[in-house]
Simulated assay, not measured.
Amino acid sequence: MKLAQGQIWKTSPDVHSHGGDAVYLRIVKLERLAVTYKEMLEPNTKDGTHKDTTKKIFCRLIKNAELVSDEL
């Protein structure tokens, strides 16, 4: 699977969670080596926290994750 802006990933609670619940990550900006994403508790909400990380760490966060939406 190729990463793209607008994708929403539902993380595995074993890898990345908030209080034991799955977290949704929406890719806001995708660069060659960096990813800016928004961390949300619900996929259809505007509430969330913007975070920056490397692409390598982001891929570790979405390990065993499920692609919920692929908005291009």
Rank of each mutant, 00 (worst) to 15 (best):
R26I: 08
L3Y: 01
G6M: 00
K51P: 01
T54A: 04
P13H: 01
R26W: 05
R26Q: 09
D47G: 09
T49F: 13
V28K: 12
L33S: 03
T49S: 13
H18W: 15
D70K: 12
H16A: 11
L41P: 07
G6H: 03
R60E: 12
R32I: 15
K29W: 03
L67A: 12
H50K: 13
K38N: 00
Y24I: 04
L25T: 06
G6Y: 00
P43T: 10
V68G: 01
V68D: 06
H50A: 02
T49V: 15
I62H: 05
K29H: 11
L30E: 00
H16K: 15
D14L: 10
E42V: 14
L61V: 01
E71M: 12
L30H: 04
K38T: 05
N64W: 04
M40H: 00
A34N: 10
V15P: 03
W9M: 03
T53M: 00
V15M: 07
P13A: 03
M40P: 03
N64M: 07
G20H: 05
V35I: 05
L33C: 05
I57Y: 12
T36P: 05
K10Y: 05
I8L: 00
K2L: 15
K10R: 13
K63S: 10
D52Q: 14
T54F: 03
D70W: 10
K56E: 14
K38W: 07
A34V: 14
K55V: 11
H50F: 08
L67Y: 09
A22D: 04
A65H: 01
M1G: 12
V15T: 03
L3F: 06
R32E: 15
P43V: 10
V35L: 08
H18C: 10
G20N: 08
K29F: 06
F58S: 01
K56C: 08
L67G: 08
L3K: 02
M40S: 06
K56G: 06
K38V: 08
I27L: 00
L72Q: 06
D21F: 13
G48F: 07
I57G: 01
K51F: 04
Q7L: 08
D14I: 08
D70Y: 14
E39G: 11
L61N: 02
L72D: 15
N44L: 15
D47S: 14
I57M: 10
D70C: 11
L25Q: 00
R32D: 14
E71Q: 14
L72T: 09
M1K: 05
V68H: 02
G20Q: 11
A34K: 15
L72R: 13
Q5F: 06
P43Q: 12
L67V: 09
T53G: 05
K63F: 10
D14K: 10
G19R: 02
V68E: 09
W9R: 00
G19L: 02
L41M: 11
D52C: 11
A65N: 03
K51N: 08
T36Q: 06
K46M: 13
N64I: 02
K29E: 11
S17M: 07
E71I: 15
E71R: 15
T54Q: 06
Q5T: 13
T54Y: 04
L41K: 13
I27Y: 02
D70I: 10
K51C: 08
K63L: 09
S17C: 13
M40L: 11
R60F: 06
T54S: 07
K29C: 07
K55A: 12
A65V: 02
T11C: 07
K46V: 05
V28L: 10
R26H: 06
K63V: 06
K63W: 07
E39Q: 15
